[in-house]
Design a protein around this nucleic acid. Structure first.
Length: 193
DNA sequence: CATGGGATTGACT
DNA sequence: GTCAATCCCATGC
């Protein structure tokens, strides 16, 4: 398994968000194909880094290919891939996967059996893959958590764009990207799905 | 130092 | 559809 190079992330965040759909997220014995992403950029207020560099947000300004993992609603860990050149805060939130490897372990961690429900949400997939806050600021190219190219045998996904989920600011931007027809995409599904 | 909101989920009505 | 759980951290006094 070869990880995507850092140069993959050193591009406009909207391009990276679209291209990450179909790639594989790997952590230890568990892995899944990314079927849903969202883009965030410092220029818009939904991005944590919109306010600037803080103890929480400084990771978003780091080199492309860095993992940004943070706690949401006090409960869930959400995982992002930092993009664009160092000093520019932008990231792609990984929102859903189709399970590929370590499925029994995912079922054990999730306490759920149905394949479609193992990784069909940003908090669900981190639980299924065992991704915790300790992985914040690790390197997605060489670290324990990696992103690999689309696995052999997987068709190139057809991308459907929609608005981002669960935010209150800049909610109208169509910066959510889904693999059309995937049963692991979270709800609500975008128009045209 | 106290307060309040958030890129969510699952259980319940 | 509604709501609680639960914690990091930004903001304001």
């Amino acid at each position: 398994m070869d990880a995507l190079p850092a140069a993959f992330y050193d591009r406009p965040v909207l391009e990276v968000a679209r291209d990450l759909v179909g790639c594989e997220l790997v952590h230890g014995p568990t892995a899944g194909v990314i079927v849903e992403t969202e883009a965030y950029h410092q220029s818009e207020p939904a991005c944590h880094a919109h306010i600037g560099v803080t103890a929480r947000t400084h990771v978003l300004f780091r080199a492309p290919g860095t993992a940004y993992v943070y706690r949401s609603y006090g409960i869930h860990a959400l995982v992002n891939a930092v993009c664009e050149p160092e000093g520019v805060a932008a990231a792609v939130l990984i929102r859903a996967l189709e399970p590929v490897e370590g499925i029994d372990l995912m079922r054990e961690r999730r306490g759920v059996h149905a394949l479609d429900q193992l990784c069909s949400g940003p908090g669900k997939l981190t639980q299924a893959l065992g991704i915790g806050l300790g992985l914040n600021a690790t390197d997605l190219v060489t670290g324990p958590l990696r992103v690999a190219p689309r696995p052999p045998g997987w068709e190139e996904p057809e991308i459907v764009a929609g608005t981002r989920i669960g935010i209150t600011k800049a909610a109208e931007l169509p910066w959510r990207f889904c693999a059309r027809g995937s049963r692991s995409v979270s709800r609500p599904r975008p128009p045209g799905f």
